[in-house]
Simulated assay, not measured.
Amino acid sequence: MLVFSVIASALAPGLALMTYFYLKDKYDQEPLHVVIKMFLLGFLIVIPVLILQRGMMLWLGDGPVVESLLISAGVEEVLKWFVLYHLIYNHVEFDEPYDSILYATAISLGFATVENILYAWYSQAAFGPMLIRALLPVSGHAMFGVIMGYYIGRAKFSGHETRRKFLLLSLFLPWMYHGIYDLILNVLTHSWIWFIIPLMVLLWYGGMGKITRANNRSPFRMIKREEEVKT
């Protein structure tokens, strides 16, 4: 029973947020099996992430700046971006700007869910720490995914002259925010809460704006409006 409770509490935040982002797709919802596939791929990339992080830690050391910006944020965001770009960018189902936000958050939340399960299993955390995990790292990964997906969408549906810029932003910005997040936790060990909360508010506020803008750029928006007028 204890094992079931630990796993359930670790799974719940990721699944709840995944459902939320799936329902935010206003005009042309993605096939559920593709979303689940990306969520499960987020599970699987934990393995290469751990291997690369271990190798980089032995090579570069584990100082807080290097660990936060390169070993943690760098490896995780680069691998998530790699999967998203190579599996989704030219996918037939990627036909509106919000789609890449959904798929990026699916990968990110799959990854964060495995992290949460490992944390819960090895720490045997009580409800309070698990709630903090739900509100901070899991939702943080979701917001990094929103940022990545938003700029992947901008690259896909923008002109050729701006495509490279948006692709670079789709990797650099989540990497930067993830690095700042980890750096706060690693350096400000006693006062981190006073910096993490404003950062999370900023990420959620900006993320919700990006979701709205992506939905507003959907080519299916006018079609749906015309259908609503006819009915």
Score class of each variant (00 low, 15 high):
G206R: 11
P64D: 06
M200L: 11
V75R: 02
K230W: 14
A120T: 07
H91M: 12
W204D: 06
A8N: 07
G207R: 00
T19F: 14
S123E: 11
V201A: 07
P198M: 06
I71T: 03
K26Y: 06
I71Y: 01
D95T: 02
K224H: 12
A112C: 04
W204S: 06
V201G: 02
A126F: 09
R164D: 15
G110Y: 11
I51E: 06
R217G: 05
L188M: 15
Y151K: 07
D99K: 04
I223L: 14
S191Y: 13
V6N: 11
L44C: 09
L202D: 11
M200E: 14
F111Y: 10
F82V: 10
Y177E: 01
E77H: 05
R163W: 11
K224Q: 14
H160G: 10
G179Q: 00
N116M: 06
G14T: 08
F43S: 11
V65H: 08
M56L: 15
V114D: 00
G128R: 12
N186K: 12
W204C: 04
V66D: 01
K37H: 02
A120C: 04
P174I: 03
E226T: 14
L109T: 03
R164A: 14
R164M: 11
D62Y: 11
K230Y: 14
F82P: 00
Y181L: 05
L203P: 09
W192N: 15
S158R: 10
P174T: 03
T19V: 15
R133K: 07
L79Q: 05
V83R: 07
G61F: 09
R154C: 08
L52K: 00
G140E: 09
A12H: 10
S68V: 01
S158V: 07
N216S: 08
L17T: 06
Y150V: 02
Y205H: 15
G145N: 10
Y20M: 14
